[in-house]
Each structure stands twice: as structure tokens, then as C-alpha cells.
Computed example of a mutant assay.
Amino acid sequence: MTEKISGRVVRPGAVVPGYVEVDGPTILSVSEHGHTGDDIIVPGFVDLHCHGGGGHTFTQGDPVDARAAAEFHQAHGTTTMLASLVSSPYELMRDATAAYAPLVAAGVIAGVHFEGPYLSHARCGAQNPSFLRDPSLEELSALVELGAGAVRMVTIAPELPGALAAVEFLARRGVVAALGHTDATYEETLAGVAAGASVGTHLFNGMRPAHHREPGPIVALLDSPSIVCELVADGIHLHDGMLRFAAHAAGPDRAALITDAMDAAGMPDGEYELGGQAVAVADRVARLVRDGSIAGSTLTMDAAFRQAVGAGLDLATASAMASTTPARALGLSDQVGALEAGLRADLVVLNPDLTVKRVMRSGAWLSPPAASGGE
């Protein structure tokens, strides 16, 4: 049974009046005729980096909690996402991989992202320093084998002993190697890129700052054509001017919006936990109790999309950053990330103010969100 969803359709590089025709779980066609109404139709959002939401977390390896976190973000338009853990003991990484593999097979999540534990102590941010350690090929090999495709991305600081070998291993095995939480020099970062890294984890945050005599990782990643740069568009992690600058510097085909959300997304202010550390959330901002470091976000992808547009990016650019580019970074552009015939029928219908009206995933309408959380 086919269905036509009409409005202003956001396609790669353009916004056209028309409709998206869906046949079951697949987009049948996209037409530039027959426009009615002022709804804005964008591809389902793709979040490369998310630790939880709606009071549920990905960080503990609990599949019931993980499914609930994914459902929370789906209601806000995220139809494809990675389940991100924080730095953890190997045993938790192993158990989470085993627990989440069935969710990956079922399409609930697109894979597991290990943000750490192979990160810099100097730039650990909200990562638990007790769990940080040098990259281990033995651990990575065991996790990749156990996951059988479930492990999709690993963030590593390229300056650590054994980091380049770990990046090379991941790239060979089809796992995205990301560079982040790093005190690397410009040259050390480029060595990580040359070894096969393809993503920069939340650019600017958890990195040595740029300097005109030592560009550091920020400039190296922005200037590397093979790197997709993650950007936390919440107005807290990045000033809107920096968000706009990075989007223009990298271009929409190399910039990806992420939430970096924790379980507090969509929840009231209060006390939460991340990686065994106490987190206080006040007025949307999550900070470690021990030192005040920003601890993830309370963001949802619809709010990130609105933030990007509010920062001065056009609808087509923001859509590419929220869907098309992250889908390509995960190797999923033949399935999701754009409103094109033959791709999965994942789309978000937005009101003129860019709030979520309806979400479709694999051709099925989801319930609308109770509120636009994460704003």
C-alpha cells in the first residue's frame, strides 16, 4: 500500500515543493509536483554519538534500557543511531557488545560506539579517568569478533602508545575509527588520519585547543578531506558562530550533527550518573559534580537541527549534517540518510517552526513526541 507525504521536501542540496511516495518500508519516488501545505519533510536523523535519553542509558549494557533510549530518540526524529558507551572496564564493554548485538540485528540501533577507554588523561573531560588505558589490540579484536558487525565505531586518542595500530586494525575490519578526547599535536593527529581514521569525535570538545603555531587536532581534522567532524549543536558545547564556522570549513558533506546525549535528555533537572560519576543537570546543562566538566548533553536531534538552522545554516545544509553525512560516515548511505527512491522510508515531518509533527521509520508512523525535549 502506497502513501504520499506532501510538503517542502528537503533533498540533497535543495528544498522542493512536492511529495514523498512510500511503498511499505521503502521510498518509491520523490516528486517535485503536487505540493500542499507548509510541512517540511526531512530524512530521518542519523545520530553517530548518543549515550541515552528519556531517563534511559546505553552506558550500562542493559538491552531493555537501550531499547527504551532508542525509542525516546526515535520520537524526536532519530531513525538511525549508535549506542555510545563511555570509558569502561573491558568486562562491561564485552557484556554490552553481547547484549546489544541482537538489537543491532533487529534494527533497533545501528551499532555500538565505544567512546574510550583509549583516551587522553589530559583531555578526558567527563570520561572516568579510572578506566582510561592504552589501546589494546587484544581487547578490540575480541570485541569485534564477539559483535560480528555490532561494533560500529571506536574513539581513540591517536597519540597514545599503540593507537595507530589500533586505528589500522579497526579500519581493516570495517569499524569506524574516530579521533577524540586527545591532546595530540597536529602531526600526531594527521598520523591517525593516515592510519585510517574517518571521524573526529565532537570537534573542539575534549581536544587540545588550536593555536597558530601549533594547530593541534582541531585544524588537522577540519582540514582532512577524509574526516567527518561531529558537532554538538546545543549552544552549550559550541557557540553558534563556531558551529557555523566549522560547518562552512568542513562543508555539509563532512560535518555531522550529534547529540552526545545522556539519560537526562528529556528529563527534569537533577542528579544523574555517567560512567560511574555523579552528574548534575541544571537548565539543560549536564556537568560532572566533581569538577564541573560538561558531561554529555540533554540534546535531541530535532533540537540540534533547529539550533543549526538558527545559527544561520540553510535547511538543505542542516539536513545533510543531520542525516546524509552521518549515514555515509557509517557506510549506510545506500539504506538511509536521504529522501531518494529505493532508500528506507525514514522521514520526519516538521512544522514550519521545525518542531516534530510526525516520524516515519521503515514506512511505519511512530507516535509523536510528548514534547520537544532537549531544547
Rank of each mutant, 00 (worst) to 15 (best):
A303E: 10
D62F: 02
H181M: 10
T57L: 04
V309R: 14
R254G: 00
L315K: 12
A233L: 06
A184D: 07
I227D: 02
A197R: 10
I5M: 00
A327P: 12
A69N: 03
E214H: 13
C229P: 00
G149S: 09
G200L: 10
L350A: 01
A220P: 04
S29K: 14
A308V: 03
I156V: 14
G24P: 14
T201L: 10
V219L: 14
L315R: 15
V22W: 13
C124E: 05
L85M: 15
L85F: 08
A282I: 09
G18N: 07
A280M: 13
L343R: 15
D240A: 11
G44H: 07
V64G: 08
G55C: 11
S141H: 12
G174Q: 10
V9G: 04
E188D: 08
S141R: 14
V281P: 11
A157V: 02
T324C: 05
G275M: 07
I5A: 02
D62P: 14
L299N: 07
H33C: 02
A178V: 06
R361Y: 01
A295E: 07
A345Q: 11
G200A: 15
V232I: 15
G270E: 13
D334F: 01
E71F: 08
G180K: 03
S141E: 13
H113A: 12
R173Y: 00
T57A: 15
R344E: 10
V336H: 07
A364W: 06
P102Q: 12
A165P: 09
G216Y: 04
H181Y: 04
R254I: 02
E115R: 05
R361W: 08
G13Y: 11
P129R: 06
L164D: 00
D253R: 15
P17I: 10
I41Q: 06
P225L: 05
G235V: 11
A210D: 00
G149K: 03
S319H: 04
D183A: 15
V289T: 13
S87Q: 01
A364E: 15
T36M: 03
A308N: 03
P215G: 10
A210I: 00
H49Y: 07
L313V: 04
D23N: 14
V15I: 12
G162N: 05
M1K: 10
L119Q: 09
V228Q: 06
E32G: 15
E138N: 01
H49P: 00
H237I: 08
G34R: 13
V154M: 07
V144F: 01
Y272P: 12
V9S: 09
L274N: 08
S362I: 00
I27W: 07
H248Q: 15
R244K: 14
G241F: 08
G196P: 04
V199C: 11
G13I: 12
V144C: 03
